[in-house]
Write a protein that binds this DNA or RNA. Structure first.
Lengths: 118, 118
DNA sequence: CAGGATCCAAAAGGATACTG
DNA sequence: CAGTATCCTTTTGGATCCTG
C-alpha cells in the first residue's frame, strides 16, 4: 500500500492546511505571497505549521520560494509551480463535488468564493 | 474557513484509509464487498478504524450498507452510491497527477494497477 | 519580516480481546 | 461474520517565546 501512487500523493497534499495554502497562493492577481501575508490570510495557522507546510510543498515541487536579498530584512515570496497549479484543478474538482453532492446552497457557490476563489 | 466547501469536503474524505476504502469498493467485477473482505484487502487496517470509516462514509452518503438477514449470522455488504462513484473520479485524477508530476515509473502506471485499479 | 525552538494538549489510529 | 470495547502509543498541531 505504501507503494500506491494515490497513497503517496495523499501524503504530499493530505495534511492539514496544505490545500488551503495552495488555494491561497492561487487567489487574486498578485501570485507571489509572503510568509506573514499567508499567515494573516489563513487565519489562525501558527508560524510553525505554515513553515512546515511551505517547506514540504517546496521540497515536493508544488511551490517555489524566492528570496529577495536586496531588502533588509530579506523578503521571501512563495508562488505555485506548474505542478502546483495543476493540482489546484483537483482542489477545484473537490469543491465541485462538494457543491454537487453535499453543500448545495453555500456562499461558495457564488462566482467568486471568498474561501476558494473559483 | 470552517464554512469553506473544500474544507468541509476534505473533512469527509481526508482521513486515513478513507479513499482506499472507496477505491477498494470500486475494484473488480463484484461491487458489493463485505466487512472482512475489505479488512483483508486493505492489509493492516484494524476493525475499529474500518468500522469508523464505513460509518462515516455511509452517513455522508458515499456508500450504502445492505444487511442480508436471511443468513445467520447476517451478512453486511457495502457498495458505492452515485456520489461515491463520482468521487472515485477525483481519486483517479489525484492518481494521474501523481503519475504525471511525481512518481513516473511505477507499477501504478500499468493498465491495471494492483493498488488503484484504473 | 520570516521564521526557528520548545513545550504541551489533543486526537487519531493501532493492538488486542471479546461478543451476539 | 461483523463488528465493539479498551487500552495505549504515536503523531499532529497549537501556544508561545525568541531572534537575526
Amino acid at each position: 500500500m505504501k507503494d500506491c501512487t494515490v497513497y503517496k500523493t495523499m501524503n504530499i497534499i493530505g495534511k492539514r492546511w496544505t490545500i488551503h495554502i495552495l488555494l491561497e497562493l492561487h487567489k487574486g492577481e498578485k501570485k507571489e505571497k509572503r510568509f506573514n501575508e499567508l499567515k494573516r490570510k489563513l487565519g489562525n495557522i501558527t508560524p510553525k505549521i505554515l513553515s512546515e507546510r511551505l517547506m514540504e510543498l517546496e521540497v515536493e515541487g508544488l511551490i517555489t520560494k524566492k528570496v529577495d536579498d536586496s531588502t533588509k530584512p530579506p523578503r521571501s515570496e512563495y508562488y505555485l509551480t506548474e505542478s502546483g497549479m495543476d493540482f489546484v484543478k483537483i482542489i477545484q474538482a473537490i469543491k465541485r463535488w462538494g457543491l454537487k453532492w453535499k453543500f448545495q446552497d453555500e456562499e461558495c457557490k457564488r462566482a467568486i468564493c471568498m474561501y476558494c476563489d473559483h
